[in-house]
Design a protein around this nucleic acid. Structure first.
Lengths: 197, 197
DNA sequence: AAGTGATATATGATTCGTCTAGTATATGCG
DNA sequence: CGCATATACTAGACGAATCATATATCACTT
């Protein structure tokens, strides 16, 4: 459901085309909080139009294909307003790597360190990206209006989570390197071959 | 994809029924890392059976409906082993509340504090749950074998993330209560009515 | 003239995830 | 006896999400 509201939020600033939403909004910024596929965006726009939350009109452009400009309606604005006032459930943690640890009792130490380091690198990349974009937005807006401060706050939340993951992974890597982990007991039938190759 | 591997991981310990996977494994423990619906579990079992990763046989029970016991095959074990050795992409952050902040420039301070507090409460509940279960598992296993330590590690990761969210939210709540946030500038046409009611 | 790339939209296929409801057996409680 | 509850599985519908593919215009290059 949130994708609908993200799009309404963007169209509430000013009318945009599907292409614009994808390349200018989601890919450049919003994907840090909610990523969206191009196909998904166009289909969601269709649905929003069917429910009269947005309207569209074709716009001719010089030297480029036509654009379909979407504009939020009063009804759409009411939906957005309600959603912005609602309390939302926090999303479930769903992370393949935590599963991997959970079932990883027969994973040898070296592989474990490799996997931990790979996770760390990915979180670090994301952290760098968040910090970079956050700094860029801070520099651009300059005047610290409410909107900018709240957006910075959203980035701070995302950043805090990435930092927590990195700190935890660092502790894990230290522990694994120091050989603090107990060895695996007798694997038993079947489990023996999980890490055979 | 991960649900398949979570189920293979569970069946690798010993054969189980769909009902068992749902109530004993996912609901009691695994949902902290990967939640799954009952319908989803049965369908995934069907698919795993179709690809010969698991086999099934009916088991009569005294005083209860029959169970369909699923057992992992050698092929399934190989798939699991490969997955456990693979490097997995970290999941995208996707959080409605971060979107809400991003678009919340016209949200009045009191509502903002309410929403922040609601998020905090949910994260606290989840943190308590994680800590409780983690402690329980630690108490049960007692001998610190490799498997228990790795499972504790997974819990630690989930716990670290929840703590990070709570700390960040606490800072936000402080800031909002102290009236540190700038007021919203002139809303402009349309945006005025977002928080009208 | 042909190819590449950016702009712009649309559609099909498939899987994942949630919700809902239905079927059936047996136990225990009042 | 009826009813709730636990056990155990099946099925339908729908939205969310991803991937691939198709179409079209125009600018710029080779």
């Amino acid at each position: 459901m949130s994708l609908e509201h993200a799009i309404l939020g963007l169209l509430n600033e000013h009318p945009r085309s599907g292409y614009d939403l994808k390349t200018r909004c989601f890919d450049e910024t919003l994907r840090r909080f909610w990523s969206a596929d191009q196909a998904q965006i166009y289909r969601t726009l269709d649905r929003l139009q069917a429910t009269k939350s947005v309207t569209s009109r074709r716009r001719k452009q010089a030297g480029r294909p036509d654009r379909k400009l979407f504009e939020i309606t009063q009804s759409g604005r009411e939906i957005l307003g309600r959603w912005l006032s609602d309390q939302h459930a926090i999303p479930a943690q769903r992370d393949p790597f935590l599963l991997q640890l959970y079932f990883g009792s027969h994973c040898p130490d070296e592989l474990l360190v490799t996997l931990l380091a790979a996770q760390r690198a990915q979180h670090q990349t994301r952290l760098d990206d968040l910090r970079g974009l956050s700094a860029q937005l801070a520099a651009e807006s300059h005047t610290s209006d409410r909107s900018s401060v709240l957006r910075q706050t959203a980035f701070d939340g995302a950043i805090a989570r990435e930092r927590a993951s990195i700190d935890w992974l660092d502790e894990c890597i230290e522990a694994a390197k120091d050989g603090v982990l107990p060895g695996s007991e007798d694997p038993g039938i079947g489990q023996r071959h999980l890490f055979g190759t």
